[in-house]
Design a protein around this nucleic acid. Sequence first.
RNA 1: GCGGAUGUGGUGAAAUUGGUAGACACGCCAGACUUAGGAUCUGGUGCCGAGAGGUGUGCGGGUUCGAGUCCCUCCAUCCGCACCA
Length: 925
Amino acid sequence: MDYTFNAIEAKWRQLWQERKTYQVTEDTTKPKFYVLDMFPYPSGAGLHVGHPLGYIASDIFARYKRLKGFNVLHPMGYDSFGLPAEQYAIQTGQHPAITTKENIARYRQQLDLMGFSFDWDREVRTSDPSYYKWTQWIFKQLFDAYYDLTLDKATPIAALISTFEKEGNLNVQAVHECQQHFDAPTWLAFSSAEKEAVLQQYRMAYLAESWVNWCPALGTVLANDEIVNGVSERGGHPVEQKRMMQWSMRIKAYAERLLEGLDRIDWTDALKEQQRNWIGKSKGSSVQFAVKDTDLQIEVFTTRPDTIFGVSFMVLAPEHPFVAQICAANQKEEVAAYQQQAALKTERDRQADVKNITGAFTGAYALHPFTGQEIPIWIGDYVLASYGTGAVMAVPCGDQRDYDFATHFNLPIPNIFADKDISEAAYAEKDAVIANSDFLNGLDAKAAMEKAIAAIEAKGIGQGKTNYRLRDAVFSRQRYWGEPFPVYYQDGLPQLVADDLLPVTLPDVDAYLPTEDGEPPLARAAKEAWSCQLGERMEYNTMPGWAGSSWYFLRYMDPHNQETFADPQKLAYWNQVDLYIGGSEHATGHLLYARFWTKALYDLGFIHFDEPFAKLINQGMILGKSAIAYVGPDQKMYSLDMLPANKEGFREVRILIDLLNDDESIQLDALKAWQPQYANQEFVCNAEGKVLVKREVDKMSKRWYNVVTPDDLCEKYGADTLRMYEMFLGPLEQSKPWDTKGITGVHGFLKKYWRLFHLNGQFEVNDAQPSPAALKTLHKTIKKLTDDLERFSFNTGVSSFMICVNELTEQKCNNRHILEQLTILMAPYAPHICEEIWSQLQPEASSIFTAEYPVFDPSYLAESTFDYPVSFNGKMRYKATLDLSLSIEEVQAHILEKPETQKWLEGKTPKKVIVVHGKIVNIVL
RNA sequence: GCGGAUGUGGUGAAAUUGGUAGACACGCCAGACUUAGGAUCUGGUGCCGAGAGGUGUGCGGGUUCGAGUCCCUCCAUCCGCACCA
């Protein structure tokens, strides 16, 4: 009987669905386990073989845990708001909801083909109103909260308002941007507009004018993590800095807790480092410098207060608000010109221009807080408006950028380090003894740091301070295909839409473009198109892509709840995600935002954990192997081995990899049929009449014509083969190029496994006592498999199955007990074939996934002898079989008597003999 | 520049605590069966060497009876961040 994988897989896909085999409910009699995949954005291209890699791994683990007796939550859904569907809508006029629905259907079909054990009754879609209702609701909670520093947590804003009413904000310890100080009577006298203006500076979700990344090509603002190398992540368009009124999230309030939490979760060091780096904590001090002949104080942040006596000038960001006020009359023109030129540059230009030092002198001077010395104030674009205070005290002897600036503009470079040469470059190490620095002389950096901060604080001109690179996250987008805000405007003030009016659904519009006044697309919606119309107008912005993905793992716990985002008891039962598998590209986006929202929801008492993902694994990317052909100046396509030494005039073209034969030659007729430009292509073939191509590793993508889809492979080899092959490819975390060639090995293995049951053409197992050899093979495999799964080593797991089946085939094992146990072990990896075999072994069972996982018994592996490798000076020379009951001394005596030992000793007396019991013998000559 | 990771056969890789380097598989070579099949089975396969043997985990050094594994220097590749004061 043949292994008819297509029929078997289709049969079980249907039966699992009918029997709801993977449906899960809360069950307090079992320990729970939550295995989560990063849900996909359903793009039009469908899945390629790289996408399911993580899903296969998580599916194997989820099935394994289920067999081990856990109640496993393993859901899937779609991150279905996003830019591609909207851009398709702009081009075609088709509503993004339709595109999205079609893409989801295709994704579902492909996912089903792979035989995943998702509980599809729990599916969520972020673009579904029943889902984004609760995204809007969470936004409301954040709008109605502020960060209380005394309690060190997000707290309902009502508490803050009540404090304002009693005592104003004079004693309030909170994360805010409010410059005003007021007492209770002043607060009470404020108009509602004034009150709201103040509250906006405290709210966790707030509306404020701030520096944002504006992408003119996309017509929207972007968060920092949506910008890669100075251009937009989507589309690669330039991005500029612009001051705009936007919704933001006060994630900065959580900077310290986001750092601290990393110590409590099981993520890779690389990923934790990336987040630490992004949060960018630095310790130092704020210092105020008085501007000569004015009342202004320029505040700077420095990580090196110990070098304060090395300050020889100051530099402000060109956008610094003081620039206009302090600028001397004779410098106005130069400064204005510089400001203008800096504003014209995009962030990318500024970055590309690091070596080009620019700046302008304002003509103003600051006074050194300790020496009273006059310090020239410059502006320069190496100082960023959005970091620290937008101003620096320049210490050229200790900072290379200050050094370069000083050198370029011929400013003094006083040396405050004893015995350090600064004639060529700044000395940035913190190990120099401080000199020429009044009360800091003779101190090392650490002591000087403490003393300097103390002196700064004593003078009342600053204080020890911690600064973070992390900035508040811009939360509004000028796009159509996103969550509408539950916000309207009354007297120009933002107001929340009442809970019973949620969700505010996405209104239909006539076009998916901004209006002529530059308003976002939602401004096009007719009044009646909105699900509710309040105040003067609704909010026209939509939420960013990361809004829905910041909490979806919570909704899976109770996806159909109409009363709340998830039932508290269910939240308490499922708790944290135990295992999260996904790509590392979300390190500073989704993974940070999800942690932030989790902490906020925890603070506000909605959930009982403050870290969402206890363990996280990043699967590596599967790369494609592009096929590159060479077209010569004569327009003929040359075989790789027919290329001249001088390839001048040749160009490389990528061709569809499906057009290749196994020997990497092109199917010429297929190429001609592929694209019109090749219809009459001429070739320069090699001696065998073939045109060979070069293979090169690229990202797997349609544009490189190197995509391999799971569909074709499932058709040809079956999902079980594909699942095991993807795992067999290498360690999960590693990136690796896809090569379909090796798949035959895994497919052959499954056939071999199948043959164990079908020796005589039909299904047959014997019920005799298993042989000791078979038991040993089995238990060796149980141990290896379990160890491998616990450390997520799926590739070695597949090898172990191969070894096991090879050994059982050799032993001609057809024993029921052995084969049943093996089948359970293999079921997580190859669910269809194992389920089919199980239905033969246990016809009354509904599914193999209700079976019990085999238990390892070490007694079957017990050995009485051991083949000692005998090495001389660490080099293995021969093996000696000895009884394991022998003592170390006895082993040594036996070994030394062996003729092989005498041969290798060459008459010498060993200096030393090392015996490790049951491991090795080493003789030192 | 800073931070992280990785370097092992022709290829994907294994070696979990310092203890037989290359498991398992692809590919390749030889053979069997067979009225071509992309089927199955057997044997071989790190490199040098006829063999004995030598040699071998990016380079160089160190610790150790013993190093792919630990330490130091350097090199290469990949990823992240980057005028962050």
